[in-house]
């Protein structure tokens, strides 16, 4: 049935809320083919109708053409919704992971989405640099209201040496616990190096 593929794209989005499934080239191709096909048919019918009216035969094509048009519009809408929502998701990931995406997510993007992501990253960076007088504000840290200056974290991987902002070095080892300034940990928690231990 017409429109079914487009609808399945939307269903796919709905199933994967908050995560980014692989770019669905296959179904998108189907939808695009369907749209092209319908447009061609409409043009053909339009031509026929003109011919008929010249000859004087009256076959009414309006209903078919309108129906096809409605399907085209619906498909278009689904396509755009699919792409838009993927971008929104990608945008959230920019805030979560920073300007470099983990490889498994990168693999799920289309070429043009990768382009968009780097464009978004650079405009966000430009904006953040422009706040305030001295060199801007990094908005991607301090995502949660601070409760305590130091937090307890558990290291999940053998990270090696890590330099704190005051210059001291810490050796991060797997399954060790650390008591570190919250601001230093935030990034590493998001990267999955640390786990925040909440008492």
């Amino acid at each position: 049935m017409f429109g079914e593929n487009a609808c399945s794209l939307i269903r796919e989005l709905d199933r994967n809320r908050g995560s980014l499934p692989p770019y669905n080239n296959e179904i998108l191709g189907e939808v695009e083919k369907e749209i092209c096909h319908l447009i061609q048919q409409n043009e053909a019918d339009d031509f026929e109708a003109h011919e008929d009216s010249r000859v004087g035969e009256a076959v009414d094509y309006t209903a078919t053409i309108r129906t096809r048009h409605a399907i085209i519009q619906r498909n278009l809408r689904c396509l755009l919704a699919y792409h838009y929502n993927r971008l929104r998701c990608l945008r959230t990931m920019r805030w979560e992971f920073g300007s470099i995406l983990p490889p498994d997510i990168k693999a799920n993007l289309s070429h043009s989405e990768t382009n968009w992501f780097s464009k978004y990253s650079s405009m966000l960076a430009t904006y953040m640099r422009s706040i305030g007088d001295d060199g801007g504000v990094n908005l991607t840290i301090d995502l949660n209201p601070p409760k305590a200056l130091y937090i307890e974290v558990k290291c999940l991987v053998d990270y090696g040496q890590y330099e704190l902002s005051d210059g001291s070095l810490v050796l991060l080892k797997e399954s060790n616990r650390y008591f570190l300034p919250r601001a230093e940990c935030e990034d590493l928690i998001r990267q999955g190096v640390f786990q925040h231990i909440v008492n």
Partner: peptide, 27 residues
């Protein structure tokens, strides 16, 4: 001003992305 710049860039990038996706469209 900075926010306005950001908004313009963002709007353009969305435009661009959607236009890219609809390249297949006949006509």
């Amino acid at each position: 001003d900075n926010e306005l710049n950001f908004a313009k860039c963002y709007g353009q990038s969305l435009d661009q992305h959607f236009t890219d996706q609809l390249q297949f469209w006949p006509g």
